[in-house]
């Protein structure tokens, strides 16, 4: 069954005809060619596919399209336009927190989510905040450093930022 589904994608109102049980992940990747959203496990266990839906970080492989009707979806493609992204990007580059890169967009989104909630997280809080994202390459320590560098460099961005919540 196909129905019309309207939602806001990365700041733009969009509408598609699709099956409401289709996964948000597939619609983003296949229909909107947003391939920065990765499929690692398809079972909600790896975090490679995370996006924001109404500012809540979700695994898009677990979200049927019916759940995003009239909602705001933001993927890495939207997030990379922001100031926050720039600071996080710099942190990740400096810390050497990227290897194969497959987990990376998800890690970036999870970092944003963490900093929105806790603008100056402790190591334990960073671990908690990124615990839904598997990385098989880096051993995570550089990712923690990346988050710390981000906070050091531009932490005030998140302190003032209660806007979108």
């Amino acid at each position: 069954m196909q129905i019309e589904i309207k939602f806001n994608l990365n700041g733009e109102d969009v509408s598609i005809m699709t099956d409401p049980v289709r996964r948000l992940l597939d619609v983003l990747r296949e229909d909107f060619k947003l391939t920065g959203v990765k499929e690692g496990c398809s079972e909600g266990e790896c975090g490679a596919c995370v996006v924001f839906v109404n500012d809540i970080l979700v695994n898009s492989c677990m979200v049927p399209m019916a759940n995003v009707i009239n909602k705001k979806v933001m993927s890495i493609e939207g997030f990379k336009q922001t100031k926050e992204f720039e600071v996080i990007e710099k942190g990740f580059l400096e810390a050497g927190a990227v290897q194969c890169g497959f987990c990376t967009p998800g890690m970036i989104m999870a970092t944003e989510n963490l900093l929105r909630n806790i603008s100056n997280p402790s190591v334990e809080e960073i671990k908690e905040g990124l615990s839904g994202n598997i990385c098989r390459c880096t051993g995570y320590q550089t990712i923690i450093e990346a988050v710390q560098l981000t906070v050091k460099d531009g932490g005030e961005l998140w302190k003032s930022n209660l806007t979108s919540l």
Partner: peptide
């Protein structure tokens, strides 16, 4: 040096097999 492939990976812009169109 900063990794030469760091930026595109962070941005999700590089293409893995599943991202390529045929």
């Amino acid at each position: 040096k900063i990794r030469t492939d760091g930026k595109e990976k962070i941005r999700g812009e590089n293409k893995y097999l599943e991202d390529l169109e045929f």
